[in-house]
Design a protein around this nucleic acid. Sequence first.
DNA 1: TATTCGTGGAA
DNA 2: TTTCCAAGAAT
Length: 289
Amino acid sequence: MRAEVLIDWFDEHGRDLPWREPECTGWGVLVSEIMLQQTPVARVLPIWQEWLKRWPVPSALAAESQGEVVRAWGKLGYPRRALRLHAAAAEIAEKHGDVVPSDVDTLLALPGIGAYTARAIVAFAYGKRAPVVDTNVRRVVARAVHGAGDAGPPSNTRDMADVEKFLPAQDAPAAKFSAALMELGALICTAKSQRCADCPLYADCAWQKAGRPAYAGPAKAVQKFAGTDRQVRGLLLDVLRGTEGPVEQAKLDLVWHDAGQRSRCLDSLLVDGLLEQTRDGLFALPGEH
DNA sequence: TATTCGTGGAA
DNA sequence: TTTCCAAGAAT
């Protein structure tokens, strides 16, 4: 894999996303990375714009109530991310002078920031060299390098070692290479309907040379949604998002027929801190009563 | 390592 | 209509 070829392609075809603008702060990049975990760019864009305008620095978000942050998270999904981002903002404000850390280990210590996000921030916010491995990168490497139809089960150590081999030595080109690799997976080397005719790596892609064989690894578990606790939790939380103050349990009872599952999900939301119960037994978003 | 955690658009 | 999947993290 030629880094230079990929970088040239990125310069010409990469999307103009606001968190890629030179004036975007480390905080802006951090917020984008958290929001983009498992959520498509198109849905993140308007919420990100709103958040950065409303809370331009970590301390601003930290000063907000948890409930308001959960409400502003809207329907991006996986709302525990909103609580973790709120907690990370507080920690950055208190311990790091309101500046997003620029080294992997410090970032990894923050809530909601794992192996991918820590390195993405280091690379994209600070232009430093770090192996950034997400689902796009894993797929591109699986195809272009290993000649497989798709990536097998993740192994962070092995996946990062794969990328490390191709990562340019200098900071700036390495950071751009990382962005380019992800972008290729997002725009060209997609999970389905690949656009191989437009791929800058076409000439020496191992998958092409092998005749583009289908994925041969272990079957990937497809996540169900309808009828799961995730759906019920989402329905329950949505009632609170759309309401000003606390609500009675009777109001929540309307969203799902199975009382046992409803109760279990309500409990789990309380445990997660996404909901709280008031002294009168009403339910509210955290910190809003 | 395998599960769990939302949501909505596209094929 | 159903199925797939979209910049993962925590446990």
